[in-house]
Write a protein that binds this DNA or RNA. Structure first.
Lengths: 244, 244
DNA sequence: ATAATTAGTGTAATAATTACAATAACTACC
DNA sequence: GGTAGTTATTGTAATTATTACACTAATTAT
C-alpha cells in the first residue's frame, strides 16, 4: 500500500522511556554519505517523524510512526505543540540532507509534535535500515532541524502532565516500587524529594494500589510492589483543577 | 501587498474578552447567499481564521489575524492545539461555502488554534465588510466547521492558564477591583468563590498590587483599585509547578 | 435622614506541607 | 552462623494553607 502525503505537513514524535533512574528519548541516527556511499558527510540525531498521509488524521499519523518503530500500539500519545518557524529546515546540514531527495519537499514544512510514553526501554526497535537508540534526555545536543527545541517543549509538557495527570505511571512497568516511582518523578522534574513526604503524597493517590506481592531476588530488603489503576484514576479525579 | 498562502494550513484565533460578568468570544458571521445575492442560503458563526502565508510563521499569522480584526497588537497570543481531523470541513454547509471559491482550497486543511485575550470588549472592530461581534461563550452552538470543538479546547486551555499563570489578568482593564477579578475567575472557571477566601488567595499574589486610588462615581462604597504587575509576576514566579 | 448597594474584614477548625532519623528485611561474604 | 552492606519502611511536631461562615463601612439616590 502506498500513500500520497501532504508536502508541507509532518508529525514528529518524542518517544520517552524510563530506565532505572534516567529519562530517555528514542532517536534515529541521520547519516549523510557521499554519492558513492564511501564517505560520511555528517551524522547526527533526529526525532522520529514523517510526513502525514492525505487520508489520515494527525493522531493516526503519530500512532503509525510509533508503531512502525516500536511495534507497539495503545500507548499514551498526545499532541503538545506545532512548530512552523520559517527557518526550521534552514541549517546547512538540513539543506544538504534534503537535497538528496531532490525537489519533492516543500521548502516550508510545519510539523505537529506528539509525545509518547513507553513503559519499557526493552522494546524491540523495528529498525528498517536505520539506527534507532535510546538516549538520556540530558545528553542530546545539536540534533537535526529544530528537534532540540521540539524536545524541550515536549519535556515541559511531560513535566506538566506528570503533576496534573497520572501520566508518569505510564513510564513504569506494570508492577513497580515506590522508590522506582520516586526516581521517575525526580528524573523528570529534576528535583529530589524527601522519601517520607513523597510516600505521604502517594498515599493520597488512591489509584496507586499496593499488591499482595513483594520484590524478589534483590540483595536487600524487598520492596512492596504497586500497580496503577487507570479505572480508579478516571473515576476519582477532579474534573477541574482548583483555583481556591 | 499580496501574499501566496499555503493551501492546506490555516490559523484560527479564539479571541476572548470579559464583559462585566461574562466571558465573551469574538466571532464572524458567515452568510452564504445565492448567486444573485438575493436570498440567504444559510448563516452561521465562525472563529477568525485565515490561511497562513508562505513567508510568515505561525505566531505571526495569528498576530496578523487579530490585528486585522481589532487593530491591536502586543496581546497575549498563544498556540493551544492543532486540528487535523479528515472530516473537519465536511459538513454540508461547509462544502457549500467552499464551493463559492471554486477549487482553490485543498480538500485537506489543518488548522493551528491560537487564543488571544483582549482587555476590553470595547475595541473598535475592523469589519472589512463582515459582521464581527462578541458572543457569550455559553450561547454559541452550531458554529462553522469544527469551530465548536476548537472553542472548547481553547476554553480548557484558558482555564488551565488562569490557574497556573496570571494570564486572566490580561482580560481585565489596567485598573480593576477585586470584585471584578473574582467575577472573571468565576465566569471562566464556572464556579463561585467565597469573597473572603478569594481575597486571601489574591493577597498571596504579590503581583496584584493595590493603587492609591478608588473607584469613582459608583452609587455605593467605592472599591480599592488594583493593577497587575507583569514585572513582579515574572520575577517571583516559581520556575516549575510543584509536585510535593 | 434613610434605603439601597457593594466593599471590606476575622476567626476557629481542619487539612496539607515541611523537616527530620531510627529500625527492619533481605543478601553476600566471611 | 554472624556481620556488613544495602534498600525499605515508618511517625511526629511545627508551620502553613484551606474552608466555612456574617457583620460593619462607605458611598449615592431619594
Amino acid at each position: 500500500m502506498s500513500h500520497k502525503w501532504e508536502p508541507n505537513l509532518s508529525v514528529d514524535c518524542v518517544i520517552f522511556g524510563f530506565d532505572v533512574d534516567q529519562l530517555k528519548v528514542l532517536l534515529v541516527e541521520r547519516t549523510l554519505r557521499t554519492a558513492d556511499k564511501k564517505k560520511i558527510v555528517f551524522s547526527d540525531l533526529s526525532l522520529t517523524g514523517y510526513h502525514i498521509y492525505e487520508d489520515e488524521d494527525l493522531d493516526s499519523a503519530a500512532a503509525r510512526i510509533v508503531k512502525d518503530l516500536t511495534g507497539l500500539g495503545n500507548l499514551v500519545l498526545e499532541q503538545f505543540y506545532t512548530f512552523g518557524a520559517l527557518d526550521r529546515l534552514e541549517h546547512p546540514n538540513d539543506k544538504l540532507w534534503h537535497e538528496q531527495f531532490g525537489d519533492v519537499f516543500s521548502n516550508r514544512v510545519v510539523t505537529v509534535g506528539y509525545f509518547s510514553l513507553l513503559p519499557s526501554t526493552n522494546v524491540k526497535i523495528a529498525q528498517k535500515g536505520r539506527v534507532v537508540k535510546w538516549y538520556s534526555v540530558n545528553e542530546v545536543l545539536n540534533m537535526a532541524f529544530d528537534h532540540n527545541q521540539i524536545l524541550e517543549k515536549a519535556l515541559s509538557h511531560l513535566r506538566y502532565k506528570l503533576q496534573h495527570d497520572a501520566i508518569g505511571l505510564e513510564l513504569l512497568p506494570d508492577k513497580f516500587t515506590l522508590s522506582q516511582m520516586q526516581k521517575l518523578y525526580e528524573a523528570v522534574l529534576g528535583t529530589s524529594f524527601d522519601k517520607r513526604n513523597f510516600r505521604k503524597k502517594v498515599a493520597q493517590m488512591n489509584y496507586v494500589v499496593p499488591l499482595k506481592e513483594k520484590q524478589k531476588g534483590v540483595p536487600h530488603k524487598p520492596a512492596q510492589l504497586y500497580m496503577f489503576s487507570r479505572d480508579i484514576f478516571i473515576r476519582t479525579r477532579k474534573e477541574r483543577p482548583y483555583f481556591i
